[in-house]
Amino acid sequence: MTLLARSQGRLEVKQFLRSREQVVFTLAFPAIMIVVFGSIFDQEIAPGVGYTQYFVTGMIGTGLMTVAFQALAIQIPTERDRGVLKRFLGTPMPKWVYFAGKVLMVAFIAVLETVILLGVATMFFGLDLPDSGTKWLTLLWVAALGITACTLCGIAFSSVARTGRSAPAVVTPVALILQFISGVFFVFTSLPGWMQNVAALFPLKWICQGLRSVFLPASFGTQEPGGSFNLPTVALVLGAWCVLALVLCLTTFKWTTKRDG
């Protein structure tokens, strides 16, 4: 990573931390959701598996999607509207530095948010952390592929909103729908079959499934579609989304608005 990329990454992180609304929504909101849902629903959903233990895996997956897909798909149109991207084009800075800064910001926030969520769930709801090197490795590669796919999807989807003001209205419903159909709030196999099929087309469902293999006992794999956590398919689908989203980024990304010409 070059000095330019690191400098751009530090700038992006500073800008994020200066926005109290963003910090609270991105970092505190998922933790609050765990406290609320964990306090209300304390029953077991399977032998030895409490609802909170299941819900935490979904919230970690949602956190990765929020800081990558949702945040970038809203932030980039706003910067495009304000002329930030146009001014960036007028500098000798290589274009890739802009995206490198976004990637570093997403990685920083994702790690920080995951640590916060695990800390809250462990201290207050008895979440068991991974007990083997294999599970920690699985957590790392699922998170890495998930963040990559969601980051690229966020950059690609940033071209959908016509203005920065309309971006939250365009992006937020998509993120919410994906959460409800991907096994975040409800046990995935309890959802209607058609809903499971739709969710299987998008990364969040596979991120959550991979995370469940890390934090839930192996016996819970029988509750998954196909009767197992199916990690090879998780890797294959997330990898495919990384490639597809990269192609969309390269072919659809817009540096300027229509009024800029």
Rank of each mutant, 00 (worst) to 15 (best):
A73H: 06
A46K: 02
L64R: 03
L236H: 06
M195T: 15
G58V: 08
I34D: 06
S213T: 07
W136H: 12
F229N: 06
T233C: 05
L11C: 07
T134V: 15
A5P: 11
T233A: 13
S182W: 03
L104E: 05
G261I: 01
T114N: 12
Q70M: 14
W96S: 14
A218F: 02
T151G: 05
V184R: 06
D128W: 03
A200S: 15
V214A: 06
M65N: 10
Y54H: 06
I74Q: 07
G239H: 02
T57K: 02
A143Y: 03
T78G: 11
V111A: 13
V160L: 08
Q22L: 09
V120H: 11
N230M: 04
Y54Q: 02
C242Y: 07
M65V: 06
T189G: 09
L236Q: 12
D81S: 15
L244M: 09
P77E: 12
T252F: 00
A149E: 14
L127K: 04
T52K: 01
M33H: 01
L246R: 05
A28S: 11
G154V: 08
R6P: 11
P30M: 06
M195F: 08
T91Y: 00
S190L: 09
A218W: 03
T138Y: 01
A144S: 11
T62I: 06
T138F: 02
V187S: 05
V36I: 15
Q223W: 03
G133Y: 11
Q196C: 10
M195I: 14
T148S: 12
Q43Y: 03
T26Q: 13
M105H: 11
Y54W: 06
K135S: 10
I45V: 05
A28M: 10
W206Q: 10
R20G: 08
M33T: 11
V243D: 10
V23G: 10
A144C: 05
L201Y: 00
V97Y: 09
V97W: 09
S190N: 15
